[in-house]
Design a protein around this nucleic acid. Sequence first.
DNA 1: TTGCAAATTTGCAGGAACTGCAATTATTCT
DNA 2: AGAATAATTGCAGTTCCTGCAAATTTGCAA
Lengths: 226, 226
Amino acid sequence: MKIDLPNHTASQLCSDDDSDQHSLRSRKRAATRLTIRREAIALGLAHGYENVTVEMICAASTVSPRTFFNYFGSKEGAYISAHKPLPTAQQHRDFVEGAGPSVFRELFELICGTFLAAETDLELFQGRHRLIYQTPELLNREKSRISEMEEIFAGYVLERFQHEGRSTTDTPDLEDEAHMVVALASGALRFALQKWVAGNFTSTRETLMRTTSALIQRVTTNEHWP
Amino acid sequence: MKIDLPNHTASQLCSDDDSDQHSLRSRKRAATRLTIRREAIALGLAHGYENVTVEMICAASTVSPRTFFNYFGSKEGAYISAHKPLPTAQQHRDFVEGAGPSVFRELFELICGTFLAAETDLELFQGRHRLIYQTPELLNREKSRISEMEEIFAGYVLERFQHEGRSTTDTPDLEDEAHMVVALASGALRFALQKWVAGNFTSTRETLMRTTSALIQRVTTNEHWP
DNA sequence: TTGCAAATTTGCAGGAACTGCAATTATTCT
DNA sequence: AGAATAATTGCAGTTCCTGCAAATTTGCAA
């Protein structure tokens, strides 16, 4: 099994996808990857992202620069969230075929669920989050990562619409409608995530859901349409 | 007057801001800048962004590489939209103090007006647009540029809320609410822009407004809240 | 017009990110 | 153990980008 081909064109950064479970090899790889990430973030937090060189990171994690690039493909790669949190086929189907009354609520739950499930190492997550939000360049990357996710979820919403019997030929804007639903839900998620991080990861998902749902409602119903 | 300090940290790319009007100097600078942009985009369209080197661009526009970086600070700089289209103080005030019934509509008009007013050279605009949307790296930049704009407009919406008497202490989520309003309006704008470009810049702003407004309405009113 | 001051362009040296290639070392399989 | 496979590494080279100081151009005033 070859490591992470630098499939850089598609703005792929890297994946922690370890399809093998328990070979010495894959455990070692996972360990190395984690070490590099940790050192990278520690250095970034200590000296500021732009003052950290790949060489420093390598020195701190005792790998060669070449190996660093084998793993991450780019300096940023070591900083940007590893997982592309995709819903399971099951979650996907449930959402598409679910006929609940509120697309927003269900979409939000879907995203929430997928997103939170993916993050395992809280400490790493926090460090990365702090660093990203104090580094414009990383923040930009993060934002575009998020907007890639949004594309995907917009696809799901579109599927759901079609499953509800609405067709693109019938409603040409259907795709745009899907995108806007996602934009709104995503705004809500950003909000929720901020609360969650600010509150040190304490509040329950249920509480967040309630608050957020109220927010969406307020935004969209205070409006007097022309 | 010094040229464009490479204020690169704040993800500033460059500005075509020519505060002087008519000195030979500034006209020459403007011309050079335009030439470089044109050549850069032409080369990008011809060979693909990543296969174009700064040296090629320089050769095509007869400036030294060092001068290129004096102008644009980065390779991307020559490709990403130059203007940061900000509303005039007048437009800003009108929006903040306007008490119309639909924030969305007025925000959309504000953005639309500011945005379209800024683009003068249609041909350049089209070329850039085409190239950006076929180059992931540039698209990311563009997206983050857009989300910077969104920040700004979210600020305006917040001001408007406050002008309406709503305070942050009263409603802690007020800022988030502003962001969500912008997210929605921005989704609408993206939609509108796409139509506009696809239709070869023919449809009137009024038509777009109507279609878009209908879209927003559909998204937010088909919803049965929990 | 001439000559000085300020703005602009340029060359050069060098740092840092990144890639391809081939050699070396470590793991896995038989 | 020994062959097959995978991971790591070194090295040379390209490209982006920066600082600095010298050369050139332009604006302006005597």
